[in-house]
Simulated assay, not measured.
Amino acid sequence: MENLYLQFLFVFFVSMVPFLEVFLTVPTAIIVFNFPPFVALIVAILGNAFSVFLFMFFGTEINKLFNKIYNKFRKSESTPKKINPRIKSTFDRFGANGVCFLSSILFSSQLGAGAITTLGASRSQVFIWTNIGASAVAVVMAILSVVAEELVSSLVNL
């Protein structure tokens, strides 16, 4: 029974790691640990949601700290840096919700949530839309894992 708890903890904590998140944990839980797909989804999404919350909170606090240090050592005649035009145009085009959803799909939900909250988006919106994006990726990975497992087992049993 303790082995099952360790497997749950493994899936939960690895889903907290940026870039690994649900891309690795859902297939591992379904194929290697033989979890039911729904259970694997729940554990991975909860782990990812917890880390998104941490990145959102500490991302804002770290940004405040860097701005405080930057303003302390900044020379009076230098002009403050502006936001990269690419980032601003993407943010203006898709909005905070779209950027949060796409960050979960394209690179890392944690880093995307931390970056968007530092730009001033609502924390609750960022949390909800980032988790919706991560959940969508998790469902796709679960479907692919189940299909791939059946495909491989049917090829092996030839």
Rank of each mutant, 00 (worst) to 15 (best):
89 S>F: 15
150 E>K: 15
82 K>Y: 06
67 N>V: 06
3 N>R: 14
11 V>A: 04
41 L>N: 03
58 F>N: 08
140 V>P: 00
122 S>L: 08
96 A>S: 00
116 I>W: 12
63 N>C: 09
15 S>N: 04
80 P>Q: 09
54 L>Y: 00
154 S>H: 12
116 I>Y: 12
46 L>A: 12
124 S>Y: 03
141 M>G: 02
27 P>C: 10
55 F>G: 08
2 E>N: 13
88 K>Q: 06
29 A>P: 00
83 I>T: 13
39 V>Q: 10
52 V>T: 15
144 L>H: 01
150 E>Q: 14
24 L>C: 07
33 F>I: 04
134 A>Q: 00
130 T>N: 02
106 L>D: 08
110 Q>A: 11
101 F>S: 10
91 F>H: 11
122 S>K: 10
151 L>Y: 15
48 N>L: 07
8 F>I: 04
43 V>T: 05
16 M>T: 01
93 R>I: 11
65 L>N: 05
147 V>T: 07
112 G>H: 07
158 L>I: 05
112 G>A: 06
110 Q>G: 09
158 L>F: 12
140 V>F: 07
111 L>V: 13
25 T>E: 00
59 G>P: 01
37 P>F: 06
82 K>I: 08
15 S>P: 01
93 R>G: 13
47 G>V: 08
18 P>I: 05
76 S>W: 15
87 I>L: 15
65 L>Q: 05
126 V>Y: 03
73 F>W: 05
150 E>Y: 11
99 V>G: 07
21 E>Q: 14
7 Q>G: 04
23 F>Y: 04
82 K>A: 09
15 S>R: 05
96 A>W: 01
110 Q>M: 05
40 A>W: 04
38 F>G: 07
5 Y>D: 14
115 A>C: 10
12 F>D: 05
119 L>Y: 09
50 F>G: 15
75 K>Y: 14
100 C>N: 12
79 T>G: 15
51 S>A: 08
145 S>R: 01
81 K>F: 07
28 T>E: 02
27 P>Y: 15
103 S>Y: 05
146 V>P: 00
28 T>F: 08
17 V>G: 00
